[in-house]
Write a protein that binds this DNA or RNA. Structure first.
Lengths: 342, 342
DNA sequence: ATATTTATCTAAATCGTTTACGTATTTTTA
DNA sequence: TAAAAATACGTAAACGATTTAGATAAATAT
């Protein structure tokens, strides 16, 4: 590897001059700069990030902690899309992205924070299910710039999808189609779930819909088996709902299977809706009605705000950024407003 | 940040001793080691990866290049699953994973190889559609340890899924169900496609099936619209196929939609099969028959072999590792063997 | 009693950068 | 024209680790 030393020798200048020339500092003449740059290209010089980071305490590397129930969030559609957008955005500003090691099986394994320090990340993005994990909290409480996704901490930038509005829009839409008996199989305990559930109740109350206790069920996110079973329970009620909302699209398919197994048609006999806006949902028949989360924007906002915090720590306003989702009107919610008054 | 210097001061030993104690070298007494380790824990010491990398030329960081048509492979189910498994495996050996910056819109952007050198990756994993990209070739031709996924280069470790056997198994299975008129909408030009297509023809020949030219179509991977259209063309043939094979599961749904639109039932009226074994495919009705790729193993093999190459360069056998897929017998291929002899 | 070995530790160089400061040369200003 | 200011470059220390060669003291051999 050709280093600044080699370059300096080839240019007949000092290493300092080379460094300053390449960093376009002003106490080097334009002529010298030109010559150093030319020679650098010629010799195939490229900096060494480790040396740079060591000296400057800036790695231009951002750590990402994406953990879902199954350890890693990479195979989780929502996370993967957010991550993808996040990555694109930071790359435009010449940062790299390193996934924080989540292996906890080594005895000598570091905590998330220790890893982050070890690698010298300039900042960290966190998206995980369990924000109550002491290690996550330790990281959030550190002095490393942090952005959290779909969870709000005090004094930390957060990018959250607007679950309140999303659920409100969804329920309102379903209501508009004449549904009054709306069941909701919600996800497991998390701030996302809390927001959606509370919005569900609030919206129903606003619309004057009563929600019988037995219409509210719980299943894990992306757990098709769980929703399958809960759906059967709902269908077996003496007064079953006309529409079922699911924790997410993926889990929704579990419910759809249960419904079909009972010989019921969607949306003629019963309506369903998901949440998230999984890409594949738009390619299946019937196309699932859902709230399409703006993963592109979530990832982008997270990245832009994190980088702003890194580069202008004092000039960054710490606040939650709310990203609205959008109702995707598929074909799984039927219009029953004609039969409504029976 | 507490450094070795601080530790050394606190322990009343030299920095050298601290380094050797922590690296468990043998010219430090057990007593001293014990004491250094204790003090290190006490003071919250953790090494600095940049300094370490600078001195040792080992970063314990692996670069990953995952590029699909849409730039990044993160949202690509197959890639995401392979990556996930890859990540788990390297983490067990205490490596970290950095996604190689693929942004090509900056004028001063580095090539993949330059990036890899800049970051000092110990090794690189490559999975992408376009292995003919000069930048990819430059990286593969470098002296950095490389593993390629689903593509074979000379003198490089490759992990490839057994598309020959996979397609053979699939066609044989379909044949076993009585199908003789099998169409294949294959993906776009790539080694994967080539392997599958050639295996398709070979297997058909072996089984004595004739393949009319018009039964072979092309659509991009994961392109539901493309498969939708090609499927309609197939259905419109004077002698339409009884079974259609798709480039991948995702694209397969495009075909399924076309079929349903024509009012045909699957698998009663026509059979279909995908490829890949998308997780969601197993949760939809009807469950898609497909070749389930062993992404877990592909990722793991890639990681293990890459690390072996990094750590024992001379003792590593460079060869392609073939990972077999598995037929997932869903419900989309109907048994028509009774009507076969008509 | 001296020479040799062994165990334990230290000093210093080094990896590739950045940067505060020093110095020589030129230009500006009074 | 001399002093002040600006320009362009160099020197050397520092970042935090590893590693080599060598120092010292204790243990063993001759």
């Amino acid at each position: 590897m050709v280093s600044m030393k080699d370059l300096a020798a080839a240019c007949n200048v000092s290493i300092a001059t080379v460094s300053k020339a390449l960093n376009d500092q002003r106490d080097v003449s334009e002529k010298t700069k030109e010559m150093v740059r030319k020679k650098a290209k010629e010799m195939g010089y490229f900096p060494n990030s480790a040396a740079k980071a060591l000296k400057t305490n800036r790695s231009y590397n951002i750590g990402v902690l994406f953990v879902d129930e199954a350890q890693s969030g990479l195979t989780h559609d929502f996370f993967a899309n957010v991550l993808d957008s996040f990555k694109r955005t930071i790359e435009r500003k010449d940062y790299d992205l390193t996934l924080i090691n989540c292996n906890k099986k080594r005895s000598d394994s570091m905590s998330y924070l220790e890893r982050a320090r070890y690698r010298g990340f300039d900042g960290v993005a966190i998206a995980c299910i369990d924000f109550k994990d002491p290690e996550v909290i330790e990281l959030v409480d550190s002095n490393i710039p942090v952005v959290t996704i779909d969870y709000i901490f005090n004094n930390r930038i957060a990018v959250i999808s607007d679950n309140i509005k999303g659920m409100h829009d969804l329920v309102t839409y379903v209501y508009g189609k004449g549904h009054r008996k709306i069941a909701y199989i919600h996800g497991r305990d998390s701030s996302v779930t809390q927001a959606r559930v509370s919005s569900f109740y609030t919206t129903c109350a606003q619309l004057g819909i009563e929600v019988p206790e037995e219409y509210i069920k719980e299943a894990k996110y992306r757990d098709t088996k769980g929703t399958y079973e809960k759906t059967l329970e709902l269908l077996d009620l003496p007064d079953p709902p006309t529409c079922i909302l699911y924790p997410d699209d993926f889990a929704g398919f579990g419910g759809i299977n249960a419904i079909r197994e009972r010989g019921l048609r969607i949306p003629e006999d019963i309506s369903v809706a998901g949440y998230d806006g999984l890409r594949i949902g738009r390619h299946l028949e019937p196309r699932l009605t859902t709230i399409r989360q703006d993963t592109e924007k979530i990832g982008r906002e997270a990245a832009e705000n994190l980088i702003h915090l890194i580069e202008h720590p004092r000039a960054t306003i710490i606040r939650p950024i709310v990203v609205e989702g959008e109702l995707y009107e598929g074909e799984t919610v039927g219009d029953i407003s004609r039969d409504e008054d029976e």
